[in-house]
């Protein structure tokens, strides 16, 4: 204890002052002493030792019983000192891990980044927010300059955090490696299913929805691998309809096939895609109903698509007291003409 303020003399004079005056100033200084001690990694048993020594100097006739009992207290503090040191080490380790995860998270963001395309006649809004630093949700837009089609992928790894994020990166790279002319939703899911089945732990499941919009014939074709059903919004009636598409989650069996559906998109209609982070929002212990989600979306659906998804996100963020339990992804695509 080289520090002048930390030494025995200082403690002794503080103690003496307190015993004489019993005033708050001395107690405040004791608090400062204790903080300074912690900064210098001084264990509680050392403080007690300093206390005993100071007391002995102030009261040379200290009775044997008091002296012994203070030594007893010192003995009883040893484990607290150890626990405190362990806590310090673990805290350092935690901040190292934290910064490692931040680096990984920003790497993931770069890897999974997708450009929201500007497509004539379509208004697109997308938001994806991880519950923790790393996301197990993923969405991606694929455009084709030749025929102006738009591919939309939205996927969710069951589970979250780092394992989910790692699995997601794999999905992204598999999709990138598929041939350019491979734009067929059911074929894409079938290919991805084989990749996931071969490479991902059987306990991990990935749900995915893939849709392809062809402006030439105003048709939206899609297939789903067990993904949270999205909604089709009828602009003229101001009503929602669930987009039905059933299929096995990716990776369950290598033989899975995915049925492809098609539908015409009318002017002012919207396609709404989401992950279960949206539908499994909780208020207290209660999951919200899908109807409640639709009410919220309805409230904002007239806004430009990007503004709408952001408002919906903000609504649920507040509802959940700013603490999402799962990654949240929402996409709205409106046909404007």
């Amino acid at each position: 204890m080289e520090n002048t303020k930390l030494d025995l003399d200082n403690y002794r004079s503080l103690l003496k002052e307190y015993l004489l005056t019993k005033n708050e100033t001395a107690l405040y200084q004791a608090e400062q002493f204790s903080k300074l001690s912690m900064q210098h990694n001084i264990s509680p048993e050392e403080i007690i030792h300093v206390h005993i020594e100071a007391l002995k100097e102030l009261y040379p006739d200290l009775t044997q019983e008091v002296n012994d009992s203070l030594n007893f207290l010192l003995e009883a503090m040893i484990s607290y000192g150890l626990a405190y040191q362990e806590f310090q080490t673990l805290r350092e380790k935690q901040s190292e891990l934290q910064s490692e995860i931040s680096v990984a998270a920003s790497m993931q963001q770069t890897l999974l980044s997708t450009v929201k395309p500007e497509i004539k006649g379509l208004d697109i809004g997308a938001i994806s927010v991880p519950a923790n630093q790393m996301s197990g949700d993923y969405y991606h837009f694929v455009t084709d300059k030749e025929d102006d089609t738009l591919g939309i992928a939205i996927a969710d790894v069951i589970g979250k955090g780092i394992p989910a994020a790692l699995a997601m990166s794999m999905i992204k790279y598999s999709m990138d490696s598929f041939p350019e002319n491979q734009r067929n939703p059911s074929a894409i899911l079938e290919n991805l299913n084989r990749v996931v089945e071969r490479n991902v732990d059987p306990s991990m499941f990935i749900t995915m929805f893939y849709g392809l919009y062809n402006p030439g014939n105003e048709t939206f074709s899609y297939a789903s691998a067990g993904h949270e059903p999205g909604f089709y919004y009828h602009g003229d009636q101001d009503e929602f309809e669930e987009i039905e598409a059933r299929g096995l989650v990716l990776g369950a069996t290598d033989q899975a096939t995915y049925r492809q559906f098609e539908r015409k998109i009318k002017k002012n209609d919207c396609i709404i895609l989401l992950t279960d982070g949206v539908t499994e929002c909780r208020i207290g212990d209660r999951f919200i109903e899908r109807d409640e989600i639709l009410q919220v979306i309805k409230k904002y659906i007239q806004l430009p698509a990007q503004e709408a998804v952001e408002q919906v996100y903000k609504h649920f963020e507040r509802l959940q007291e700013f603490q999402f339990r799962d990654d949240f992804t929402l996409i709205i695509i409106r046909k404007e003409v």
Binding site: I78, S79, L82, A83, Y84, Q85, E86, T89, L90, K93
Partner: peptide
């Protein structure tokens, strides 16, 4: 390793001995 102790995170165990 810290935190591994079978003592239920009481800060002791072999890392504790090493510290003491």
């Amino acid at each position: 390793e810290d935190g591994y102790t079978t003592s239920g995170g009481l800060g002791a165990g072999l890392p504790g001995v090493k510290r003491l």
